[in-house]
């Protein structure tokens, strides 16, 4: 039986009827058309479906839509402001941390969750933070560099 849930997605309140067996990933991609969140393995292994739920990164493929009732969800679509890329997004582009791009939304959200709580992470902390996000193209090095650069940019813009 469908139930009506209300949640906040990228700052906007959404009200929608969902079946209990619908995942948050399906809700985002299929009902709201937010296809930036990717469907990889569906089993929690790859991190392509990473979104930030009430401040913490989670695998949207392992969260029921009904479990997100009343909660705040941030997807990759919610990062840019007034058409300007978020510093992490910009650093990924500048550093060449994107090849096919399938892992990128998840990587960026894991990086954002890290920098929100730990603005000056060590390389190890960065690698741990993205350890649930698999990338089959880049070999991770450029991704790590992009997160380091983004951390510096965010720091310097906050100081000035």
């Amino acid at each position: 039986m469908k139930s009506i849930i209300q949640l906040v997605v990228n700052g906007e309140s959404v009200e929608i009827a969902v079946e209990p067996n619908r995942t948050l990933l399906q809700l985002l991609r299929e009902d709201l058309g937010l296809t930036g969140t990717k469907h990889g393995c569906g089993l929690g292994d790859c991190g392509a479906c990473t979104v930030i739920l009430d401040g913490s990164p989670v695998n949207a493929c392992l969260v029921l839509a009904v479990q997100a009732r009343g909660r705040q969800v941030l997807t990759i679509e919610g990062l840019a402001e007034n058409g300007n890329l978020h510093p992490i997004q910009k650093a990924f582009v500048d550093k060449g941390a994107i090849q096919c791009g399938f892992c990128t939304p998840g990587m960026i959200l894991s990086a954002k969750a890290l920098l929100d709580t730990n603005p000056k992470p060590s390389e190890t902390e960065i690698r741990t933070a993205i350890s649930g996000n698999l990338c089959r193209c880049t070999g991770y090095q450029k991704i790590v560099e992009a997160v380091q650069e983004a951390a510096e940019v965010i720091q310097s813009t906050e100081v000035s």
């Binding site: 991190g47 990164p57 989670v58 695998n59 894991s110 649930g132």
Partner: peptide, 9 residues
């Protein structure tokens, strides 16, 4: 246990 996203849940 697992990775950060798994640990959060």
């Amino acid at each position: 246990l697992g990775a950060p996203m798994i640990r959060n849940r």
